[in-house]
Amino acid sequence: MISDFHPIPALVGGAMIGLASVMLMAFAGRIAGTSGIAQRLFPPYVDNVMPGRIAYLAGLIAAPGAMMLAGLAKSGPQIDAGLPLLLFAGALVGFGSVWGNGCTSGHGVCGIARLSIRSFAAAGTFTAAAMVSTYIVRHVL
């Protein structure tokens, strides 16, 4: 339950996330929002930049392998929730991120960096909601 807190890796990893977001805007002119990118794998298709989307998502998926090859990834993630709860939570996260036009990357990083008022509202709302459901799962159920 209790995880270690390492401030320097957290800041450095965060900075890498920021740099990736800046690069995607500089080269492709796109917000590095994973839900925005992933949802456009589905119709309606309104543009012709699908190869770039697939390449970006492939990069995300390739990261663990690359980090393990470089000796920088210790181990895989610790996913404690069981399959039924994962199905429920995944569907909520997928639906909500599309309905609310963004997730942690799109609203929480890129939107806040653009000083978007909608992103501040969304990030505050989803963080508060996450605190509620974590509380319910850990302390009520």
Binding site: F88, A89, G90, A91, L92, V93, G94, F95, G96, S97, V98, W99, G100, N101, C103, T104, H107, A121, A122, A123, T125, F126, T127, A128, A129, A130, M131, V132, S133, T134, Y135, V137
Partner: peptide, 10 residues
């Protein structure tokens, strides 16, 4: 949307 997303995230 943000609230539903957050509930699943938590």
């Amino acid at each position: 949307g943000a609230a539903l997303f957050g509930l699943g995230w938590g």
